[in-house]
């Protein structure tokens, strides 16, 4: 099996999965709530990249359409959570 572009696509999806696991560690153990939102934003962008890689691997265009819609939804989610959190006071210890 030669090293073609399909190999690097599936390796790239695996590397992005590792990065996602590392970000989920911060999402679980973040000391404050902005940390968790930053980790959530990171996971969302990684999902967008992973869907682009999977769409090129399976040669399906609909994965990239879903990536665009996912990017829109993650942007709206992050903005809404940030506006919600702006009025609250964080408990600092």
């Amino acid at each position: 099996m030669t090293f073609t572009e399909f190999n690097i696509l599936i390796i790239g999806v695996a590397v992005m999965a590792v990065g996602m696991i590392v970000a989920i560690v911060r999402l679980l153990f973040g000391p404050t709530s902005p940390d968790r939102i930053v980790a959530l934003d990171t996971v969302n962008t990684l999902v967008v990249g992973m869907m682009i890689g999977l769409g090129a691997y399976h040669e399906e265009v609909i994965f990239i359409d879903i990536a665009i819609v996912y990017a829109v939804l993650s942007f709206v989610t992050t903005l809404v959570i940030a506006k919600y959190m702006e009025g609250s006071k964080e408990e600092v210890n």
């Binding site: 967008v48 942007f75 992050t78 903005l79 940030a82 959190m85 702006e86």
Partner: peptide, 26 residues
């Protein structure tokens, strides 16, 4: 299209997160 959309939206969301974090007293 994905590239243009990420370049437009991701700085906006990070700006909103930083502003919310500062105003909520982190």
């Amino acid at each position: 299209l994905v590239v243009i959309f990420l370049m437009l939206t991701n700085p906006l969301s990070s700006h909103a997160i930083a502003r919310a974090a500062y105003n909520s007293g982190v």
